[in-house]
Design a protein around this nucleic acid. Structure first.
Length: 450
RNA sequence: CGGGCUAUAGCGCAGUCUGGUAGCGCGUCCGUCUGGGGGACGGGAGGUCGUAGGUUCGAAUCCUGCUAGCCCGACCA
């Protein structure tokens, strides 16, 4: 993309309404624009990152054997009356009436809808196990939306639902989700720690939340410092293996790690004192096993081997995709702007032409731009007739992890400059070598965007 | 929902107390010079002052209602 043809309305000053750093940076980097309290338009740069996150989620869900689909945002109130949640959910649910006076709602979640689909089409234990998921906009009429996309009223969420014949099978689905979530967050450059959580209105005894540590997090968290040493890495895993998934769950959840909701001071004190940590975290996902709560209420049964109808065991699992943008920025920025992890960056490298209009510099930038695209990377070429300082400041603000600086001075010696946004370190090299180096850096990090 | 606050140009703000032709910085447009970390000079464009009503010869300014947004708290991906 050439910056001169892109739409990137960056702001030099901090908008008054934004208090936390991720919100400020998203506004300043021209990623979002507030439409109403807790409702945002996604401008091109923000939309590009959102799509990349979404695609990572899809890839990891499908890798785990889960099946993508799409359910509507508007749902029928009758389904929710059936589960009993139409009254339970309260003011947070946005209720709508259509022209015929029928009660509808903008879905805050999809347990009812998915259960209805399941019961209409699945009747045999032979069709199980099955896990369906979708990524769709949700609406929860929060009393007080804030922090930009971190607590919007409208938000983009992946929610998945597993259907299993037995509790044991459903718990394997639970473990499988935990593993796939660990992989998902790591690909996004995040450390998200699974912590024992509270069931909330969705209910259920087995539930973990995934928390990203950040000072601006809304939850207070208590953990054994050993949990932050764990990483899933690129180990191979068989998602169908009960033992392997169980082992990962034990590895990642056996140490003390809880949010304030479930915090137990006595248990926490059993952690050696030098490893006890109290911090704040941003919740970016949650997994539940809730047994037959919805299947019984809504008659979602299958016939077992003996031909008898039995309610299926279910769980649900969510990742707050739009919230992840805020969480990633909270976890990865400095006073100049965002620092995108390689896995989610909207563009892989920025090209800064120091002397736009200089024949040699322009030509070198064009060649470099074409070479990066040919190599499968997405460069952002700042071809505006701006001064160097302005171009650098924009690149730093929008946070591309790598920058190639092209100027007459370097070109005299046949070199350009490759700079890491994270460390600020620069290295001079011929343009072809910079391309090679970037290709290597992004190996395994390429995600389809827009 | 309880408590606090705000609304004036795309963004950040002054002007309101004490009513009298709506301003500044940034951005933006044009021109000249400049050119390795938001440069300089000159010239432009852009606002029914959130909204409805009231007081007044005259309202951004005073009064009343409404709306929207922000912050702290309790709730949530």
């Amino acid at each position: 993309m050439r910056l001169s043809r892109y739409f990137l309305p960056v702001l030099k000053e901090n908008p008054a309404e934004a208090q936390i750093v991720s919100h400020r940076l998203m506004l300043r980097a021209g990623m979002i624009k507030q439409a109403q309290a807790g409702i945002y338009s996604w401008l091109p740069l923000g939309f590009k990152v959102l799509r990349k996150l979404e695609n990572i989620v899809h890839e990891e869900q499908m890798r785990a054997g889960h099946i993508p689909m799409l359910m509507p945002t508007l749902q029928s109130a009758d389904l929710w009356r059936e589960s009993g949640r139409y009254d339970d959910y309260g003011e947070e649910m946005l209720r709508i009436t259509d022209r015929h006076g029928r009660d509808m709602l903008y879905g805050p979640t999809n347990e009812e809808l998915i259960t209805d689909i399941f019961r209409s089409h699945v009747s045999s234990y032979k069709d199980l196990p099955m896990t369906l998921y979708h990524i769709q906009w949700k609406f929860r009429d929060e009393i007080r939306p804030r922090f930009g996309v971190m607590r919007g009223r409208e938000f983009y969420m992946k929610d998945g639902y597993n259907f299993d014949l037995t509790k044991e099978d459903a718990l394997h689905a639970y473990n499988r989700h935990l593993v796939s979530y660990l992989r998902t967050y790591e690909r996004m450059g995040l450390q998200a720690i699974p912590m024992r959580a509270d069931g909330g209105p969705i209910g259920g005894d087995y539930t973990h939340e995934f928390l990203v540590l950040a000072e601006t997090g809304e939850s207070e968290v208590f953990y054994d410092s050993e949990v932050t040493d764990l990483s899933f890495g690129d180990r191979a895993i068989d998602y169908d293996s009960v033992e392997q998934c169980q082992a990962v769950l034990e590895e990642f959840t056996s140490r003390y790690a809880r949010t304030d909701e479930t915090h137990d001071e006595a248990l926490f004190n059993e952690v050696p004192e030098d490893r006890r940590r109290v911090a704040r975290g941003i919740e970016v996902g949650q997994i539940f096993y809730f047994g037959t709560k919805y299947s019984e209420a809504m008659g979602a049964t299958v016939q077992d081997r003996d031909g008898k109808p039995v309610p299926v065991h279910m769980g649900s699992h969510g990742i707050g995709v739009s919230r992840l943008l805020g969480a990633i920025i909270e976890a990865s920025h400095d006073d100049k702007g965002i620092i995108w992890p390689e896995g989610v960056t909207p563009f892989h490298a920025g090209i800064v032409n120091l002397k736009q209009g200089d024949e040699e510099a322009d030509a070198a930038c064009e060649t470099l731009y074409a070479a990066l695209e040919a190599a499968g990377l997405e460069p952002l070429y700042d071809d505006r007739n701006e001064r160097a300082g302005g171009k650098f400041a924009t690149m730093d603000l929008i946070g591309l992890p790598w920058r190639i600086t092209v100027g007459p001075r370097g070109l005299k010696n046949g070199v350009v400059e490759l700079t890491s946004r994270r460390t600020g370190e620069s290295e001079e090299m011929p343009p072809e070598e910079a391309v090679k180096k970037l290709v290597k850096i992004y190996e395994g990090h390429l995600v389809k965007g827009l």
